[in-house]
Design a protein around this nucleic acid. Structure first.
Lengths: 203, 203
DNA sequence: GCGCCGGCATGACAAGTGTCACGCGCGAGT
DNA sequence: ACTCGCGCGTGACACTTGTCATGCCGGCGC
């Protein structure tokens, strides 16, 4: 029985090295290549044809999501696991549409990475359970386009009057939209509302 | 010759595990404990008295910078290495003021971490060279400790009254500090002030 | 001792913010 | 034609925020 061959793509070199060291500790896994951006990862995919690709999302040159789609199209034998900081349902959805078989968060225990690689290689899907629940349960974005537009500006520190001028509304209306957004998000003020919306990926 | 004992603090569990695996590959280093936030790290410091503390900056409970200061004050035998994503001169300055002996970026090669630990343990300083150059050119942090403390909370969306209760000051005083911070940063309000300070690495 | 400065506080005022009730016009559904 | 919802606006009110002048007190230099 030969080891599962893994390619890791991650833009922070030290994290890349650390993840490689982590997987190197598993006897049934072998890190056959590393890449610090999406383009390098594609080259490595072509050269090595690994069993599993583990990739970050936010990388220069090419994001992990487009990399996943490319990998799916050109090297269907390679299964893709997304490994990211961001628990955003929007990212998960796009990852699955791109053909990724796994979606794992960087704040999960280290042991889950190796396990996810094994399970994906067996043909299973591995989705972070909390995120999966959240993705289906959470009502997708209670904000209207106007509210988003205005709340975003408020989060940057602009005053109601400035926002009103920017979006061509009256100041009172801007305050109404903000009030509405604040109550929808259960916040105490515009700042907290912006924080919550950002965190949920609605801004 | 016994191994250098290292404590790692990092809020993303998988990265924490990966870094530990990375250092575990070095025969002269031993990871004696791990912590996923500043408070846990302090406990581990007291219990283990490691030779070197490697810590992230942005963590829940207590940031790596305050952790570094605490470590310096209470466990001076432990040398501190900051390991972070952020190449912000303000962070570097505060890290050094807090008594850190090393400041390393996560996008440096993985091998530098072990090397930095060794050098810091020998009493040397290890500062990311690019960042060190930039740090001298940039303007210094204008904020006092109080202003930072209060502005940070304001940036989270808390009201003056809430902040006053948290830091045991009167509400008027909190407003005075915020006003001072706003004018120092050339901002129009607390939100913009927090944004500017964050971007410069002063929060 | 004295003056001086920094941290903290108070009070007052103007401006900005959050909420609510209400009104207008417009397109869609019946 | 009538109502309904929706996007937008107004005005009023209470509250929060930003600013400033002023003052207290403890530590420091001299």
């Amino acid at each position: 029985m030969s080891a599962i061959r893994v390619l890791i793509a991650e833009d922070q070199a030290m994290i890349l090295g650390a993840l490689a060291a982590l997987l190197a500790g598993e006897p049934d896994l072998a890190v056959c290549a590393r890449a610090v951006n999406g383009r390098a990862a594609l080259c490595a995919l072509a050269a090595e044809r690994p069993d599993v690709l583990v990739t970050d999302i936010e990388m220069p040159e090419m994001t992990g999501l487009t990399l996943a789609a490319e990998a799916r199209a050109r090297f269907p034998a390679t299964q893709v696991v997304i490994l990211t900081t961001f628990a955003r349902p929007g990212y998960l959805r796009r990852a699955l549409e791109a053909g990724a078989r796994g979606y794992l968060l960087k704040d999960r225990p280290a042991a889950e990475l190796a396990e996810a690689v094994r399970r994906v290689h067996r043909g299973e899907r591995v989705i972070d359970p909390e995120l999966a629940a959240e993705a289906w349960a959470s009502d997708p974005d209670p904000l209207t386009e106007r509210e988003r537009q205005i709340l975003w500006r408020a989060g940057e520190g602009r005053s109601s009057a400035e926002i009103a001028a920017e979006v061509h509304l009256s100041e009172g209306t801007v305050r109404n939209y903000l009030s509405e957004a604040i109550s929808k998000l259960g916040a105490a003020n515009r700042i907290e509302a912006a924080r919550i919306a950002r965190q949920k990926g609605w801004l």
